[in-house]
Amino acid sequence: MLAFRRRSDVATTLFFFLIVSSLFPLGIGPEPAVLSSIAPGVLWVAALLAGMLSLTRLFAADFADGSLEQMLLAPQPLALLVLAKIFAHWLICGLPVVLLAPIIGLQYALPNDALLVLVFALLLGTPALSLIGAIGAALTLGVRGSGLLVALLVLPLYIPVLIFGAGAVAASQHGMSSQAHLSLLAACSLLALVLAPMATAAALRISVE
C-alpha cells in the first residue's frame, strides 16, 4: 500500500541512479579497463545518493497530515512502526536500484561473477542505508533546507557500508573471495536493524513534540 502510493519516487530514484552512473563514463572515457576498475565505487556511490533523494519524504507526508502524531500515540511500539516505514522505503528506493544495478554493471564491463557479487552486496547493504537514513530524516523533519542537511548528516555514516560494499565487488574482480566483505556488510546491516529503528523513534519524538 505504502509502496504504490509513491510510484513517482521509484521512477525518480531509478532515473537518478541511471543518470549519475552514466555521467562517469562520459567524464572519464570509455576504456573498459578503466571503467571496470572504478565500477564498484561508482555504482555504490550512485546507489547511496539515489537512496538519499527520497529520504526527506520518508516521514514528511505523515508529519504534514498529522498521522505521525497518531503513530506516536499508537499502542504498538513506535520503533516497530518506524521499521515498517523504513522497510517500505527500502522496497521503493532500495530494491529497484539493486535490480537495476547489474544492467548498469554490464555497461561498466563488469564480469559476470562480479555482477553477481554486486547484486548480493547491494541486497545486503541497501537496507542499512535506508535504516541509517531514517535517523537523519527523522531528525531533520520539518527543518528548513532539510534535503541538504540530511546529506550532511547521513553521508558520513554511510562510509562503512560504502567501503565494505564496493570492497566486496572489487575483491571478486581481483579473483579474491568477497566473503569477508559481505559478512562485514551483513554485520553493518544487522547492527543498523537493531539500533536504527530505536534511534529513529527517539528522533521522531524529539521532532514532533
Partner: peptide, 20 residues
Amino acid sequence: LLALVGVVNVPIIYFSVKWW
C-alpha cells in the same frame, strides 16, 4: 541524539577505513 549516533559509529567508521 545525533552526537550519540555519531559516537556509536566512530569506531565502526575507523575500523572500516583501516580495513580499506
